[in-house]
Amino acid sequence: MTTIQTFAGLGLGLRRSHYHDFLEGEVAVDFLEIISENYMVAGGKPRDVLSRVRERYPVAMHGVSLSIGSAHGLDADYLRRLRELADWLDPLWVSDHLCWTRTSAHNSHDLLPLPYTRAALDVVCDNIDRAQQAMGRAMLFENPSSYCAFPGNEMEEWEFIAAMARRTGCYLLLDVNNVFVSAHNHGFSARDYIAGLPLERVRQVHLAGHTPGEIVIDTHDREICDGVWRLFAEVSDMLGDAAVMIERDDAIPPLAELLAELDIARAMQQAGAKVAA
């Protein structure tokens, strides 16, 4: 499978309310990430905006509907459209989540948790092989956040991800917030989780906000909390030249607020690099 080169940049998600900023202004980001499905359309404004954004910024594709953990395999029409978009856009890389979204009959439009069993690992690896073959490129898969764990799990989530990357040659998108959320919800150590991952396969990092509670919910609707920042600060020097991005999907603030958060990430990266040196 193809190699994905590192891209040591800091970026933001491309959201509608910021279209004008990115098309008309000079925004201090190294790359933008799109939600792939929003642009897997025949034409119109979304594709027009994206073509103009692409002239100004490198773009990473991040999907939510591949359903790589689906027992019923992959949706051929979806893959064809994803490939068409990737061929047209020439992105830095194409990512999705380690999760499942649908059965053969219905789509939940949510990132549902997988059982971490050898059977599920076999299915996921077969699906990743097929997806990477169909895309003609290696892909990144993001560690999920989850609110319940299947009884009968045979391995830890990070062991599942490490085995998946080893068997398929895929790369990883490390969502630090998801590690924080799931560590709280399932009672594991976030540090153990990250230490158990093959970090040399990480090409991108997500930072985001969540809703606290007895069960923490991954809402992406607020600023990044101190706990997530602390976790990122602890691991940033271990992530090499992975690209880092702030992921906000709801209650989207003015761009300046997200750029200020990106400055914090930049400062932490630089501090981490100094410590490592």
Partner: peptide, 20 residues
């Protein structure tokens, strides 16, 4: 039971609880 069938059964059950 195959890996695919085992996972399909778990996902069908989970999805039924999500939808109802």
């Amino acid at each position: 039971m195959s890996a695919q069938a085992e996972l399909a059964a778990q996902q069908a059950e989970f999805m039924a609880h999500v939808m109802a």
